[in-house]
Simulated scan of single mutants.
Amino acid sequence: MEFTDGVEANNGDLKGKLTKIRLAPLGRRPRSCPEIGPAWWRLRSTHDSVTGLFDTLYLVRQTRARTKNQSTRGRLSSDAQDLLRAAIVFTSAGLDATVQALIEHAVPLLVIGNANAKNRFEIFIENQVRASKVEREFLAALKDGDPHKRMVQLYIRSLTKASFQGSKDLKERACGALGITNAQLPQSRFTKLDEFFTARNDVAHRLDLQASTGADSKPPRTQRRQDEVGQMCGEVLLLIRDLIKATATNLVECRNT
């Protein structure tokens, strides 16, 4: 994540300096691993969309400061705040879409060739068998001509049917299914996203509105700082990138064993 200072206008009509958020580059896609392709392109699209929002934020602040001869310092305008909220929502949507695609395309091979992923899959099957009421789809999978394939499909569906609700949920569902160890991605990388998930929930579920001070008064909204939002979104995108890279490593090892 980089924050670069804008250049002051030559005629002095722009008081202060604008800061432009630049997301860290994703680097190269892991090669010789076609299963990660769909996830990688979703990550790239998310990175591009969030970058576009931050570029628009810069232009909005620049235009407002020049047309109104205002200082660039101080609280952001409401339209600038909405762009920061949009960046949080776009990043969250990209997280769900990317990791779900990664699970969908990588798990079928990993449950065969990766010990950690296979163990999680077997736990899923055991839980289905021991359930007080066995699901109809599970019974149909047992009777199928290729029960393993149907079981894997049910397993993937259970992992991807809901959005990720927090850093713990992301680590348990994604890392477990993809066979990713703590050595590959430590717990601290996930807990750093707690602030992001809190912000995501505040924006997506409450529009950043706080408790009203009166029955008929306009509720205040949480004011976002662009450096904090930029940092949060950047950490999410880099973690997703590293999830993809770790998965690619596990897939390559499956093929080599």
Rank of each mutant, 00 (worst) to 15 (best):
L109V: 04
R150L: 14
T213D: 06
S32P: 05
A204G: 01
A39I: 08
N127A: 13
S158F: 08
S212N: 10
S45F: 12
A140E: 12
E135N: 15
S212M: 03
M151T: 00
V111P: 10
K192F: 10
V252C: 04
L23N: 03
N201K: 15
L239T: 04
V60D: 02
S217Y: 11
L26T: 13
F197Q: 02
T91M: 10
A248N: 06
A97R: 08
K15V: 05
L139Y: 07
H47I: 13
R75W: 08
L102R: 05
T19M: 09
L18Q: 03
L239Q: 01
M151H: 14
E2R: 15
V236F: 01
R64Y: 03
Q226A: 03
K161R: 11
E195L: 15
V229F: 01
L23M: 07
T19D: 03
G179H: 00
E122R: 14
C233T: 13
G74H: 09
P219Q: 01
D208T: 09
G145I: 05
R241Q: 10
D48F: 07
D202F: 11
N256E: 05
S78N: 08
L237H: 01
A97L: 09
L251C: 05
I125L: 12
T98V: 12
Y155I: 15
G27E: 04
I244S: 04
S49V: 03
A141M: 07
L154K: 15
C233H: 06
H148K: 14
T67Q: 07
